[in-house]
Amino acid sequence: MDLQTLFALLAVLLVLVSALLMLVLDNMIGAVAASGVVSLGVAVLFVLLHAPDVAMTEAVVGAGLSGVVLALGLRRLGLWRLDAGATRQSAAGDEPDA
C-alpha cells in the first residue's frame, strides 16, 4: 500500500466517521462542524483524484461558506447553544458561548 492509498484511506475514514457523527450528535453546532469536516475530507480526496479546481471549490464553499450559512441559520433559529436540551427562551445568538 503506497502513500497515496494510505492518505485516501485516512481521509475516507475521517469523512465517514464525521458523517456518522453528524447524524448522531445532539448538538447542532457540533453537527454543523461535522459537516464542515466532511467537506474538508472530501476536498482532500479531490486533490488525490487530480482535481485541484474541484478541491479548491469544495474547500472554499463546503468547509467555509456553507458552514457560515448554516451557522447563521442556527443563530437565527435560536439553536446556537452548546447544551442540546436546554430550556432557554431568549435569543441564543447574543451570548458568546462558542
Binding site: M28, A31, S35, S39, L77
Partner: peptide
C-alpha cells in the same frame, strides 16, 4: 435542520 445537513 439535520435533514439539510444530511442533504449536504
Amino acid at each position: 435542520f439535520r435533514m439539510v445537513l444530511a442533504l449536504a
